[in-house]
Amino acid sequence: MQNNKNDENNFEILNQFRPERTEILKALHSLQNANPQHYISSDAMKAVAKYFNITLGQVYGIVTYYSMFSTKPRGKYIIRLCKSPVCYMKGSFNLKNYLEEHLQLTASTENISADGLFTIETTECLGHCEQAPAMMVNNTIYSNLTREKIDEILHALKTNNYEL
C-alpha cells in the first residue's frame, strides 16, 4: 500500500512537467525536494523512467552524475561546505572537522546526525569567494563563517526548526 501511495505522489509531481527529456533535471530536483529526506528513491527513479519513457539505467546514470542529487537518505538540512581554493585558504577544512565532531557524524551514522536533522557534504566553489569561507544549508547561503557563527546557525536550526 505504502508503495502505491508513494507512486501516486511521484506522478503527481511529474505531471507538472512536459514529458520531454529537457525537463528531467527539473523533475528530479522537484522529486528530491519533496522527499523529507532529500533523496531520490528507487521508486522515484522508476517513476521518472516511466514518465519520460527512458530506461531505469539512464535515469540512474543521470542521478548519479550530478552531485546535488543523492540516492541515499539525508538529514532534513543538507549542509554543503565549500572546499574550493579560496575557502580552503580561509580554513574551510577546519570547519568541516568542527561540524563533523559537533554533530557526531561518522560513516557508521550514514552521515546523518542522530536527530535526523543534519547531513554534511562538501561542494566545489559556491561562488561566494569574496565572503569565504561559505556554506549552503539547503538553499540558503551562509558566508564569512567562523566556529561561533556555525554554532549560532546550528542552534537556530535545531531550536526553531524553521523551514529553509
Binding site: 529537457t22 525537463e23 528531467i24 533535471l25 527539473k26 530536483h29 550530478y66 552531485s67 546535488m68
Partner: peptide, 25 residues
Amino acid sequence: IYIGAGSYLCGEELTLIESLEGKRG
C-alpha cells in the same frame, strides 16, 4: 530557465548542451 544539478564540467559549452538535453554531462 534550465537548472543544473552540480557539475563543473557542464560549464563547457558542448557538455552544457548535453545536460540541456537531459543527459549525463
